[in-house]
């Protein structure tokens, strides 16, 4: 049922929409090379790169659209790309 005035009461429920399927290239982050500069974290338009409990950055492939801004902005080339297998 459509809510009154089509108001959406569930904040941030766009997480249902897994945009990872848009990807042509998959960024791969090598934590051994990572210097934790946070560039990839802050520049990701999806917020798809998050820090895990060990302080390592991880790419959430459910949402990563493969724009590769992270790869381009990584100062130590810790992120590489591979073509997605369809």
């Amino acid at each position: 049922m459509v809510t009154i005035a089509a108001i959406i009461y569930e904040p941030g429920n766009s997480i249902r929409n897994k945009t990872g399927s848009w990807r042509t290239f998959r960024p791969i982050l090598d934590n051994n090379k990572c210097v934790k500069c946070e560039n990839c974290y802050i520049f990701c338009p999806e917020g798809a790169i998050q820090e895990d409990e060990n302080g390592n950055f991880k790419i959430d492939y459910d949402y990563c659209k493969g724009c590769l801004i992270c790869m381009n902005e990584c100062p130590v080339n810790a992120i590489t790309k591979v073509r997605e297998e369809k």
């Binding site: 049922m1 459509v2 809510t3 009154i4 005035a5 089509a6 108001i7 959406i8 009461y9 904040p11």
Partner: peptide, 25 residues
């Protein structure tokens, strides 16, 4: 009860009324 902007209850008012919901509104 339906519509008020308040950080304690973050709702989205005035979204895109896609064809799947517009006619019902």
């Amino acid at each position: 009860k339906h519509a008020y902007l308040d950080p304690d209850r973050p709702i989205t008012q005035g979204p895109v009324g896609v064809p799947d919901c517009y006619m019902e509104t």
